[in-house]
Amino acid sequence: MKISYAQGILDAHRYLLANYSEVFVIGQGLWSPWYVGATMTNLDIDFGKDRIIDTPVSELATTGAAVGAAIGGYRPIIVHPRMDFMVLAIDQIVTQAAKWRHMFGGESSAPITVRAIINRGGEQGAQHSQALHSWFAHIPGLRVVMPATAKDARDLLIASVLSNDPVMYIDDRWLYEQEQEVEPIIELNLADEGPKILREGNDFTLVGASYTTKLCLDAAIILSEIGISVEVVDLRVLNPLNYEKIIASVQKTGNLCVVDGSWRNCGLAGEVIAGVMECISLSDLKSAPARITLPDAPAPTSKVLEAVYYTKVEDIVSKVQSILNQ
């Protein structure tokens, strides 16, 4: 059966709502879900407006309400149709939910799933474009998930909601049309999930997350045509981050480039490189590790500037070639 990434998210919602009475969804626009592509179509009709709750324009209070309901035994999904607006709710995510279990000595926990959607491009500009996963992956106690494939979009959302920890599940609208063959749903334990090798190769390791994983896979195909064998690691779970597979891959290929869909300074790409470098010997490396990120600037509006701003497959291809040609 072939499904799209958006369909995977919708299927996960349907599975959770049908099988777990403690699951509900809360957020803005849920009764008119044009905000979220095809990922929530008809959920309110099929599962009722008591479980699919459209809310006032209050990111902080609705996220806090999800935290309170989670403390009370429910498994809410709080939807933020754009990550930019979610910043208004950051106290409840970072300072409340992520710390609740630790600061109360394990006596209570707040297993919310925060669904944060990256929605950018199309001249949307600085405040309708942000990918803030690195911020959140910095926070102990908050699991951060970024699916790249349709199967993961479905299975990792289910695993996020069933996790007994607060989880930020970040999906990217640029991936909604991506399709993949999938098997019927098998529940995963999120604590056991981590980076995965999506394509094996011997010459170069590319690491991506979410949309940049797709870019890496596309680049790997082009590079294979000129005889460069690229291994692609999809991070999938950014926090806590398990480096094992990335390290093994770099030890095999000796070359590493991390591609991140957000900014450079104090970002995911630098963190992955540091985490790998701490665990390998210098003799494993054939080249200095590299990263491709957005420029450290807010997203522009004009399409001419957007074309420069966002990473393209060709950028990755030429980076890999230039490293190997050094």
Partner: peptide, 19 residues
């Protein structure tokens, strides 16, 4: 539970009421 971030438990209590 009690927490010292001013106002932080008001939305949480509201959610506990929803539950």
């Amino acid at each position: 539970g009690s927490v010292p971030i001013v106002g932080a438990t008001v939305p949480i209590a509201t959610g506990a009421a929803l539950a």
